[in-house]
């Protein structure tokens, strides 16, 4: 039996590190008669890097948008950072602050400078004062290699720079999990790599990442597991080495053939 004092030393963070970061059980979502997700099961551990791929309309974005409840599921169980998410629940913002999200179209706030984009939630949600918030912001802008743009407005940056700022903005909140929803799909080809490089750095730092992306090179290099979706269901899950050389599902074979030529 464990003595009491050792139990109390055993802190909460340790507990959550051992439990999965995200646990999805029989998750279903539908719009009217269209089934966007059907009985999806997926467990993601802390430190894991997951790449979700699949044909368009297969439910990839819907799935990761359920994780921070930008989309509400109708059925199934969803546990994020130890909290069970119930549709229509209160206190979602407390869960969202620990789940960073990067969007396809960046969604930076155009009326705020790069620095203010990064400090807004730190000050309002984390209640840091301006000096502290700006220190955190500068550190994260450094991390995405764009510290010199702090005082510019988003519209003055290139697409790749904007997306890196969006990553820094999410990182400022010190999230336990980062969600990437097609982060390079809206970028000019020559800007894709600067964003992927930053994401690779993050992966090397041990960040828990769930990425919806068509960048198979990135998936091969960074992912611990590839999740392949089709028609609202996960049809195959495998480490990249296995997925790319020996896909099992017919739809995955076809997808790879088309995407890799």
């Amino acid at each position: 039996m464990t003595p009491i004092h050792e139990l109390s030393v055993h802190n909460n963070a340790q507990d959550t590190m051992q439990a999965p970061a995200i646990q999805i059980e029989n998750l279903s979502k539908w719009y009217e008669s269209f089934r966007a997700l059907t009985d999806v099961n997926l467990t993601i551990a802390y430190g894991e890097r997951i790449v979700i791929c699949g044909p368009s309309g297969s439910g990839k974005s819907t799935l990761i948008r359920c994780i921070n409840q930008l989309e509400v599921h109708q059925k199934g169980r969803l546990v994020v950072n130890g909290v069970t998410l119930v549709p229509g629940m209160k206190g979602l913002s407390a869960i969202r602050r620990d789940v960073g999200m990067v969007f396809q179209h960046f969604n930076l706030f155009p009326h705020l400078t790069v620095l203010d984009n990064c400090t807004l939630a730190l000050r309002r949600v984390r209640k840091l004062d301006r000096r502290e918030a700006e220190a955190v912001a500068h550190a994260n802008l450094e991390r995405v290699r764009i510290p010199e743009q702090a005082d510019k407005y988003p519209s003055q940056l290139s697409g790749g720079q904007q997306q890196r700022v969006a990553i820094a903005r999410a990182l400022c909140m010190k999230p336990k999990v980062m969600l990437f929803d097609e982060p390079t799909s809206a970028l000019d080809p020559e800007m894709i790599n600067e964003v992927l490089d930053v994401m690779t750095l993050l992966a090397q730092d041990g960040m828990t990442m769930v990425c919806v992306t068509h960048e198979m090179g990135f998936a091969r290099k960074v992912a611990d597991r590839i999740v392949f979706m089709d028609q609202g269901q996960i049809v195959e899950q495998a480490p990249p080495s296995e997925f790319f050389t020996n896909p099992k599902h017919e739809r995955a074979k076809l997808f790879l053939k088309q995407i890799l030529h």
């Binding site: 930008l70 999200m101 969604n107 939630a121 949600v125 969006a166 909140m173």
Partner: peptide, 17 residues
């Protein structure tokens, strides 16, 4: 753009903020 609201919510800001 709806993305503006989503980005704010995703950062953990309340709806009124």
């Amino acid at each position: 753009d709806r993305g503006q609201v989503e980005a704010g919510l995703a950062l953990g800001l309340g709806r009124l903020d």
